[in-house]
Design a protein around this nucleic acid. Structure first.
Length: 254
DNA sequence: AAGTTGCCCAACCGCCTACGC
DNA sequence: CGCGTAGGCGGTTGGGCAACT
């Protein structure tokens, strides 16, 4: 949480402003005007939820939904954390989709199928085992997440450079005649995450992602691992529960 | 065709926390 | 070290739209 080190990005200058920089800023304002009458917060939101290149719009795929359901079960309503595993989706989008669709869907499923797969399996084990099962499951998730964030984290400079490239491309296109089409094309080219591309997998491997690299998704290999881990619910749970039962028995024996 | 209801989703709000002075 | 500022986040709202009566 909290403010990210926005000036820690490579290539971003810190410290006091020089007279030259002041002149550049003033001339830019004189040329383009003071800008929007919007607060930084609103601008940021608009960018990250709507304008950011690579955002996938439209309905969620089954795979995405399952991923969200799993992650929500493991992480709770930490939408930003969940969104980091679906780079093409915004936290707001995921939150809205959860509140409007998935919550109801899960409610119906729970009502219609009270004893589904893993839960039924878990319920069949003793109470203590179920608690252990739950704890270890969260532990596995935490471990996977920390690995994702610590080991597989891509260099910040790369994603930021890519991002600024796209922004400048968009701005240049915007300033040129026929700007809308060009800007859209530039965004599309730059992002490499068209509908078809992003539909191949829930993980974008494009060079263009969020300007806020703090929420950069893990790199694809780990993502694939995480996805397969998360999505292989039934098999994993069964094997896992067997293991847990064995461990529990051993503990009881000792 | 007009009115009502329900849903969706972009945007706002308030809290928490890190940063800078 | 304390305080003000600003960004990030989750919860909530309300406008727009489609379906229904």
């Amino acid at each position: 949480m909290g403010r990210p080190p926005c000036c820690d990005k490579e290539g971003v200058k810190k410290g006091p402003w020089t007279p030259e920089e002041d002149i550049i800023l003033v001339s830019y304002i004189q040329e383009h005007g003071p800008g929007l009458l919007r607060c930084s917060k609103s601008c940021r939101l608009r960018w990250s939820n709507y304008l950011r290149p690579g955002i996938k719009r439209g309905s969620f795929t089954d795979q995405e939904e399952r991923l969200i359901v799993h992650l929500q079960a493991l992480l709770g309503n930490r939408w930003a954390a969940i969104a980091s595993y679906l780079p093409a989706r915004t936290d707001n989008d995921i939150k809205n989709h959860w509140n409007t669709h998935l919550k109801k869907k899960l409610g119906n499923q729970a009502a219609n199928v009270p004893e589904n797969g893993s839960r039924a399996s878990c319920r069949s084990v003793a109470k203590g085992r179920w608690e252990k099962c739950l704890q270890t499951d969260v532990g596995m998730a935490k471990r996977a997440l920390s690995e994702a964030l610590a080991v597989e984290r891509p260099p910040a400079a790369t994603s930021y450079a890519s991002s600024t490239e796209n922004i400048s491309r968009l701005l240049q296109s915007w300033l040129n005649p026929g700007r809308c089409a060009a800007a859209a094309a530039a965004a599309s080219r730059g992002s490499g995450t068209s509908e078809s591309a992003s539909s191949q997998a829930s993980v974008s491997t494009s060079t263009v992602v969020c300007p806020n690299e703090d929420s950069s998704p893990p790199s694809p290999p780990l993502m694939s691992y995480l996805e397969s881990w998360l999505l292989a619910e039934d098999e994993r749970q069964d094997v896992f529960l067997e293991d847990m039962a064995a461990i529990s028995d051993t503990c009881n024996f000792l």
